[in-house]
Design a protein around this nucleic acid. Structure first.
Length: 297
DNA sequence: GTCAGACCTTT
DNA sequence: AAGGTCTGA
């Protein structure tokens, strides 16, 4: 494998690749993380602060650097957050190396369509099944086949009923087709062009797609469009916000009004790195939830 | 502008 | 009840 020196910047692959922002990674028996990004299979490992990588079918170091956002100074970002909030400082230490990824906007949008009222294991299973059924074969190694995430056109022309029955995607199946069609209508490169807009403008454009609400729009903004101030507010984040800094808010569900209030609270507290703050807080909650699931209390 | 219910399954 | 969004009141 080839090496990249991270120059002391932390990167924890397990945390970063399984925290719920990406759904296409798994750790092989030999400890190497493998997953498909765009049209390539990427294999990753860490040894002594060095990142080891390999891509198929051809070498693509720029892709690895871009996807993992290696140009970011995460030490600096975490330091900034720690100064704003001691609790975040503690989380930044506990989960050192938990990073945001820079994913493909189309894949991010469509996978989060699958995330509606769903759990991480089932989202992962659903996205994998979609890729096998509608994606292209990338390569076959160690006995496993790897497929690309389906192209927009393949999902747009797919039978909605077949989508619905794919790995129990249910009502999310037809949504997938509908959103794929709408993105396709806007032309090649439209979604990617949102990277050049402000957070507010990009989110507005995304919200014009029927089937895309605030949560999914913010996921796309944060996980694929470089909008580090975006805060996807799901039911967990709402509860966290209520627990940590909005004790007077009584909301039991997320209405538009609640969404806005939580978003504004994050914005006020953490400014341009609000998305990173959300990321850390969400991960802490995810760990607690997983521990509960294992009966650790 | 604001709030329940429905939508597909499985735990 | 699960990492939502649309619809209709």
């Amino acid at each position: 494998m080839q090496e990249i020196d991270l120059n002391g910047q932390p990167l924890d692959l397990a945390l970063t690749l399984t925290c719920g922002q990406a759904f296409r990674w798994h750790q092989r028996e030999d400890g190497i993380w493998s997953g498909v990004v765009r049209d390539k299979l990427i294999e990753l490992d860490m040894r002594d602060g060095m990142l080891l990588w390999r891509t198929y079918p051809s070498d693509d170091e720029p892709l690895v650097r871009d996807y993992l956002r290696l140009a970011d100074d995460v030490t600096c970002i975490y330091h900034t957050l720690a100064e704003m909030d001691p609790h975040l400082g503690e989380l930044a230490q506990r989960f050192s190396g938990l990073r945001l990824l820079r994913q493909d906007p189309t894949e991010t949008l469509l996978t989060f369509i699958c995330s509606a009222a769903n759990s991480i294991p089932r989202i992962t299973a659903g996205v994998a099944a979609l890729s096998v059924k509608y994606g292209d074969l990338v390569c076959e190694t160690e006995g496993s086949c790897y497929f690309t995430f389906p192209h927009l056109a393949r999902l747009a022309e797919a039978d909605p009923t077949e989508l619905a029955t794919t790995e129990s995607l249910g009502f999310r199946g037809p949504n997938l087709k509908s959103v794929a069609e709408q993105v396709l209508e806007r032309g090649e490169g439209w979604l990617m062009s949102l990277r050049g807009m402000t957070y507010s403008d990009a989110k507005q454009m995304l919200l014009e797609i029927k089937g895309v609400g605030q949560k999914i729009a913010d996921c796309v903004c944060l996980f694929s469009l470089d909008k580090d101030e975006a805060v996807p507010v799901d039911t967990h984040v709402r509860q966290l916000a209520q627990k940590f800094f909005m004790p007077d808010m009584q909301a039991k569900t997320i209405t538009d009004a609640v969404y806005r209030r939580v978003m504004e609270a994050f914005e006020e507290r953490y400014g341009r790195y609000a998305g990173w703050a959300q990321h850390l807080l969400f991960y802490e909650d995810l760990m607690r939830t997983r521990a509960l699931g294992r009966g650790l209390k």
